[in-house]
Design a protein around this nucleic acid. Structure first.
Lengths: 125, 125
DNA sequence: TTTGATGCAAAGTATTTGCAATCGG
DNA sequence: CCGATTGCAAATACTTTGCATCAAA
């Protein structure tokens, strides 16, 4: 059974606190202000476990992963210039016949993920 | 100006030939049957260039990238079990007010990407 | 007490890059 | 010719893992 260690709870708290979708390293820096001798490996291990528990969300980006403390279904906007990730507050509906796809292909759909790509407000101009 | 080397054209040909969305390494193996002494670095370099030219498409997966020789807009199904990627032939429409989002956030949308996640036919059972 | 979790460092994996040699236009 | 491209190997970047020790329940 999983244990609630100081490390794990601080990692979760720090992630829930921000809306910046930090990378593992960025989160490591934040957590280190509260647990100076924590190791990067521990951050990775816990992000993995917290993700499996559904307490956080892993966002696959091009070069590395980012993490999101908000687990309600929502989509992301990815800036092609600075690589930052923003939340899309609006609901995005899909018009797609899941049943027909599943019958035709034999694949079982679990969920969808919409990525919105472009240039963020800071990078325009 | 870009040059049409043997390496570049064979890489493009081999990628166009398959529907399996190979990784750089997988494509390297295929290309090596025609150019035995080609190096993996050359494959990476050319995939990058071909992508910029819009001749192929880079698909960001969790741990590594895959590449697609089909550049017509289409979506992908990602198997969570075996990590294979399949084409979604059906059109997926989005109900989303792009203009309102752009005005509200200041971000400029270039395009959308829908990922369909689940378990593929081979992995079910 | 017991076993999952930690810190550390080393290893792994995917990708990029420096450089001298080569080749396409 | 001349500069883009190559093969090679070394270097990066991100992430995972082995292991002895520690600590939560």
């Amino acid at each position: 059974m999983e244990r609630l260690t100081k490390q794990r709870s601080v990692i979760l708290e720090e992630l829930k606190k921000v809306k910046t979708h930090p990378t593992a390293s960025e989160l490591y820096l934040a957590v280190r202000r509260r647990i100076p001798n924590i190791s990067l490996g521990t951050v990775y291990r816990n992000l993995e476990i917290l993700g499996e528990e559904g307490l956080i969300m892993k966002i696959g980006c091009d070069t590395f992963n980012r993490f999101d403390g908000e687990t309600k279904a929502h989509q992301h906007f990815f800036c092609r210039n600075c690589q930052k990730v923003y939340d899309v507050e609006e609901n995005i509906e899909l018009k797609f016949n899941q049943k027909i796809f599943e019958e035709k292909t034999g694949h079982k759909i679990q969920d969808f993920n919409v990525g919105v790509y472009g240039i963020c407000k800071d990078c325009r101009r």
